[in-house]
């Protein structure tokens, strides 16, 4: 298994990436971690004429907090996400999820931007971004725009990212105190995509859930935000009945297909179970509860 012929570009600045994207259009592919793209190229299912390697661009890496927003460079690796003190303190769902993605070597290469932007419904970060209500900074030569993750995903491998655009940053609203979060993923083995997974954030005040979000991985054409599941626990004490209602709602919202991971029935049931577990863990992590 070897890739086809291409020309390799390794720009040092975002502007140069944007110029190359503008020039090559469909013939150019951005190489970040490469662990989705390179296997496709080796299978000759992807044959870009130009590879634009963004790994030399320091400004695309790193995690910082500014004005109530956690800003993550798109080329930040999953290993860096796992090791980030800031995230482990303020938004642990991201490092928790990163530990469930692929394996140590792949996490050293794989980036959060690639995971969010390539449109594979098996990727774990999109559901988390939906739950966190994150937004993506997309740049092209004309300028930049900010798009909510909740508006980004369209279909399998189809997103709002235009051919000439680069995802440069991910903006995550810093979770308020009293927010608990959890990502629960069932998979066959290390390195596998989810049979089903659920990302949950919830906030509690005086024993009542004041805000919640539930999103699902690999059980539809894109990551799915289950508004109904969130509604089921909002305003409740997040008791067993509310959790069951949320699980039922998530199951109703998901659209898995049968594959090697299981039947539609099984994967739907796992959506319910992962939702239950994620809500329970998120609740247990609400500070002071």
């Amino acid at each position: 298994m070897t890739p086809g012929v291409f020309e390799y570009h390794r720009p040092n600045k975002v502007e140069d990436v944007l110029a190359l994207l503008a020039e090559f259009g469909d013939d150019g592919k951005v190489l970040a971690g490469g662990h989705s793209l390179v296997p496709m190229m080796k299978l000759r299912l992807a044959e870009p004429a130009h590879i634009i390697d963004i790994n030399a661009i320091a400004s695309l890496r790193g995690i910082r907090e500014e004005e109530g927003m956690i800003v993550i460079g798109a080329a930040t690796t999953q290993a860096e996400i796992m090791g980030s003190d800031l995230l482990n303190e303020k938004c642990r769902i991201l490092p928790d999820a990163a530990a469930l993605i692929a394996d140590p070597q792949v996490r050293n290469c794989g980036t959060i931007g690639g995971n969010c932007a390539n449109g594979d419904p098996g990727n774990d970060d999109p559901a988390i971004m939906l739950a966190l209500n994150a937004s993506y900074t997309l740049q092209n030569q004309a300028g930049q725009r900010q798009i909510a993750a909740r508006e980004f995903y369209e279909a399998v491998y189809t997103t709002a990212l235009a051919e000439d655009e680069l995802l440069t940053e991910i903006h995550v609203p810093a979770p308020a105190k009293g927010t608990g979060m959890s990502y629960q993923k069932i998979k066959r083995k290390v390195g596998d995509y989810a049979i089903a997974a659920a990302a949950v954030t919830l906030s509690m005040s005086a024993g009542q859930c004041t805000d919640a979000a539930v999103a699902l991985t690999n059980v539809g054409d894109t990551a799915l935000l289950s508004l109904e599941a969130a509604e089921a626990i909002k305003g409740s004490a997040v008791d067993a009945r509310a959790i069951d209602r949320a699980a039922d709602a998530a199951m109703a919202d998901c659209e898995p297909v049968e594959d090697m991971r299981g039947t539609v029935e099984y994967r739907t049931a796992m959506v319910g179970e992962m939702t239950r577990r994620a809500i329970a863990e998120a609740l247990s992590r609400v500070a002071g509860s």
Partner: peptide, 16 residues
């Protein structure tokens, strides 16, 4: 005995 197949038995028996 994948999770999916074991679950099938659990589900048929109503144990889940």
């Amino acid at each position: 005995h994948t999770q999916a197949k074991v679950w099938q038995t659990l589900n048929e028996l109503g144990l889940n």
